[in-house]
Design a protein around this nucleic acid. Structure first.
Lengths: 159, 159
DNA sequence: GATATTTATTCAAGTTCTTGGATATTTCCG
DNA sequence: CGGAAATATCCAAGAACTTGAATAAATATC
């Protein structure tokens, strides 16, 4: 009877957080906590803070961005130092990078969750990202610009 | 003071176990415990038992075999049902498999630790494994044969 | 620069994890 | 079949982890 409230362990909750922040447009830990509550998982803001830190989620402008944790690859934090310019045309985004870094940049883009990117192609100093549609491309371009402008402030210190 | 005995957490110890059983030729949990002790890590046999189970280490004949835990891929337990024949020539091993399963078999071989395999090539029903040298090839061939003969008894039940 | 908002940290309690010793169970071999 | 060897499991104690409430610190806004 009543609501079904499974205990939900930490890992499950963190996976859910990743999904939520890529689906909805969440910008505060309180908002994340509420979104979790919608899904039947109730936690305090303190817990969300720790979760975001552990997940390596970034906050760009007023939006959380999840980059799957992959210690072996470059993270989104390299973008500011690699990206030289961004141009959007229809559903495409052309990113000019420092020579030799296009591959790393495209790899990062491929791995950011929640971006509707169909695929990327990297040359030596240029990345072409094909988005789902014009709007998605706009979002991608704006996002990269934001990341490069804002000094990519991490959402957590982690231990 | 005296010997430097870092506490060593479970993960570190298990990584060490994987390394030890692929380097040395260990066949009993007591032996593993002693090898660990050599490296300055002292644990009881009970702990080794649990570690091997968690790591998914197999015992083939009188030797432990480590297959990196990868829930997304086939495990060594598929070999008996896929492998039809094994032939060794010099530093090469040719494995005949059921049609369509050569890729899975080669993937498994690529992931078994401690085998001195330089690389594998898979067709539709044939895998060619190139070993470091003749002796290594012999070992590989013998191992596969063992795995297929012995009904691949897992070294642990896990939780 | 003062206040409001957002995020991080401290503290304490409850829970889970980890591990060795002892012992049961299984496997091996003659 | 009957030990002996090897492995798994039970139990208890201690360590480590998880989390919310409270609060501090940082950031944003006017």
């Amino acid at each position: 009877m009543g609501a079904t409230r499974a205990p939900v362990d930490k890992t499950t909750r963190q996976d859910l957080i990743l999904r939520l922040i890529s689906e909805r447009d969440l910008g505060t830990q309180q908002g994340v906590a509420e979104a979790l509550a919608d899904e039947g998982v109730e936690v305090a803001q303190a817990t969300v803070s720790r979760d975001l830190a552990e997940l390596g989620v970034l906050k760009v402008g007023s939006r959380y961005l999840a980059l799957p944790h992959d210690p072996g690859s470059a993270g989104i934090e390299v973008l500011p130092s690699f990206v030289l310019g961004i141009v959007q045309a229809q559903n495409q985004v052309v990113i000019h990078t420092r020579d030799g870094t296009a591959g790393a940049v495209s790899s990062v883009l491929d791995r950011v969750r929640g971006l509707r990117i169909l695929g990327t192609i990297a040359g030596q100093d240029t990345v072409l990202a094909i988005a789902q549609n014009d709007e998605a491309a706009e979002e991608v371009a704006g996002l990269i610009a934001d990341v490069c402008r804002a000094k990519t402030r991490p959402a957590g210190n982690v231990e």
